[in-house]
Computed example of a mutant assay.
Amino acid sequence: MNRIVRFLSRSKMLPAPDTSRGLQAAAEWLARAQDASGCDGVSAYYDVTKRQWVGAYPETTGYIIPTFFRYAEFSGNNEYRERALRMAAWESDIQLPDGGVRAGTMDATQIVPTIFNTGQVLFGWLAAWRQTKERRFHDSAVRAADWLVAAQDSDGAWRRFASPFAVHTVNAYNTRVAFALAEAGQMLGEPRYLDAAVRNVQWAMSQMHANGWLDNNDLEDNERPLTHTIAYAARGFLEVGVIAKHGELVEVAMRIARAAAQSQRSDGALPGRLDSAWRAASRWSCVTGNAQMAIIWLRLAAETGDSIWKPAAERAIRFNLSIQDVEATNVGIRGGMSGSHPLSGGYMKNRYPNWAAKFFMDALMLKLGAG
């Protein structure tokens, strides 16, 4: 335990950048990504090599929606609320007839529903329903949640409707879909959504090693999962546990969070990939994973009342702030967050993905007390 405390509370930190400025710059970058898409969705990423934005990404646009609602309230800038509503309406317009959400970006030629993407857009429809009580958002959320429940196997896993753009067909990180279903159950008063969420995270627990490491938990390389997907899985355990009042699930999230903290570098970054012993499996860092783990550590501090989690979060946030360029003349870079650091690393190489900025905003708003 003492070793864990040392990892969580090490004091070495980078000089403190301006958190509020970083938050505003990330919001402005995401607004430009929305404008660049040619629709009300958000461009998936800016490609530095090609110097261009790509098509809108339904999956991540979906979970940017609640981030923009929070930022509108935090900043007092109603433009971001209007942007979120446009995103939510666009998502309803492109929702597939069966209730699912398509794989890939709008540039993709293959149009098929996928489990993970549907779960992520469900967050957006629920947030829009909470904000407006407009029936279209309620109906889109119900159709999506019903489709997810119908697609679930009896043991709680999802094996059908995997993304055609991912290597593996069964994923522990679908606990983030369970998180969306749990929220739907809570908001819409539908117990079977929460029941389905709990079944999934209980299945995911069957994939866990004694040290907290999960099998089947990466987009491509299950032996060396990304901190991005590790954090997806951990957040699902945490939030389903909180909503369902299931303490064992919160303990699982804590186990993963402790292990990840032990891999944190002195500069605050996490290795982009980790092996089954929680050792670094890459020299580069996954910037999205840094932000997501900061969110988990801050959420654990809030839920448990234990401030021991905060130093690791502070270091991860400071690292990400230190690599954010808020003065670049290239508007595809200014305020955005790269996929990897260095930029040539193994995740989203030479790209600025919209989800990196989204999770960075979420982490910063939690730090500033606006989460």
Rank of each mutant, 00 (worst) to 15 (best):
L122T: 09
Y173A: 03
G100V: 10
F123I: 03
L122A: 07
V177F: 01
Q110I: 12
R130P: 00
L194S: 10
P113Y: 07
V112T: 13
D155I: 09
F161C: 11
L181V: 01
A128M: 10
I111G: 07
D146F: 04
R102D: 03
N174A: 05
F123V: 07
M187G: 00
T109W: 01
D153F: 01
G104T: 03
L148M: 08
Q152G: 06
R160C: 11
A144L: 02
D146V: 12
T105D: 10
S163K: 12
W147E: 05
R159V: 11
E134A: 15
T114Y: 10
T175P: 05
R143G: 09
A103D: 01
P113A: 03
A128E: 10
G100K: 06
P164R: 13
Y193Q: 08
D155E: 12
L122C: 06
A127K: 10
A178P: 07
Q152T: 06
W147I: 02
G189V: 01
D107P: 02
R136K: 15
W129P: 08
W125F: 13
S154V: 13
A162V: 04
D107N: 06
R135P: 14
A141L: 09
N117T: 11
A182D: 00
Q152E: 02
K133Q: 15
R176W: 05
V112E: 13
V101N: 11
G119V: 05
F123E: 06
V170P: 02
W129V: 04
T118I: 03
P164G: 14
R160F: 12
Q110P: 00
F161W: 15
L194F: 08
R160K: 15
L126Q: 02
P113I: 00
Y173M: 09
G104Y: 05
A180W: 01
G189D: 07
G189H: 08
A157C: 13
D98A: 01
R143I: 07
R159H: 13
F165L: 15
Q131P: 00
Q186A: 11
E190V: 15
M106E: 13
W158C: 09
F165H: 13
A166R: 15
Q131K: 15
A151M: 12
Q186C: 04
G99S: 04
K133M: 10
N174Q: 11
V177K: 05
G156A: 05
L188T: 04
G100W: 10
A182Y: 09
L96N: 03
F116G: 00
H138K: 15
E134V: 12
T118M: 06
H138T: 10
Q131C: 14
W125P: 01
L188I: 06
S163N: 11
A108Q: 15
S163M: 12
N171P: 03
R192Y: 09
G99L: 02
